Computed example of a mutant assay.
Amino acid sequence: QGCHYTSKTYRQLLWRFGIKQSLSRRGNCHDNAPTERFFRSFKTEWMPRSGYQSFAAGVEAINNYITGYFNRYRPHQFNKGLSPQKAEAEYFKTYNEVASFS
């Protein structure tokens, strides 16, 4: 919530481009932690240092990272080393087993 994010000039620029600003509550750094962690992983694991050749190439690469790698294969510490898809499958397997005993 620094002055550069709350300045009138900056907010007008966001408005002009149709960008909705999201600021967390003062003193609460945990609001954006999952998003910040995702972008850290993306930048260090996938994004080329020199950027992408074109906008379309960037869109394709980002889509491949999210749907092809991050969700399917990349292990996540929060999920006990499982990818999001595997963790979700395990959850629903357990949920269905528990539900069938009811």
Score class of each variant (00 low, 15 high):
residue 86 K to Y: 11
residue 64 N to G: 04
residue 32 N to P: 03
residue 98 V to D: 06
residue 43 K to F: 09
residue 24 S to C: 15
residue 20 K to F: 12
residue 69 Y to A: 04
residue 56 A to Q: 12
residue 99 A to V: 07
residue 42 F to V: 00
residue 32 N to Y: 08
residue 29 C to H: 13
residue 95 Y to P: 02
residue 65 Y to T: 03
residue 92 F to D: 00
residue 38 F to T: 04
residue 96 N to G: 02
residue 93 K to H: 07
residue 84 P to Y: 06
residue 51 G to M: 07
residue 15 W to C: 06
residue 40 R to N: 05
residue 102 S to H: 13
residue 87 A to R: 01
residue 53 Q to C: 06
residue 21 Q to T: 06
residue 79 N to S: 06
residue 50 S to C: 03
residue 25 R to T: 08
residue 70 F to Q: 09
residue 99 A to N: 10
residue 54 S to Q: 09
residue 92 F to V: 00
residue 72 R to C: 06
residue 21 Q to R: 14
residue 14 L to A: 07
residue 92 F to W: 12
residue 60 E to A: 15
residue 44 T to D: 06
residue 44 T to R: 13
residue 74 R to N: 08
residue 78 F to C: 07
residue 82 L to R: 15
residue 59 V to F: 12
residue 75 P to N: 10
residue 53 Q to K: 15
residue 48 P to Y: 12
residue 58 G to W: 11
residue 42 F to D: 04
residue 91 Y to Q: 03
residue 37 R to E: 02
residue 78 F to V: 09
residue 81 G to F: 01
residue 39 F to L: 10
residue 92 F to G: 01
residue 55 F to A: 07
residue 59 V to H: 11
residue 19 I to L: 15
residue 67 T to W: 14
residue 46 W to H: 11
residue 92 F to P: 01
residue 81 G to N: 01
residue 79 N to R: 03
residue 64 N to T: 11
residue 63 N to R: 15
residue 37 R to T: 00
residue 27 G to M: 06
residue 63 N to W: 15
residue 60 E to M: 13
residue 54 S to H: 12
residue 56 A to R: 13
residue 82 L to P: 00
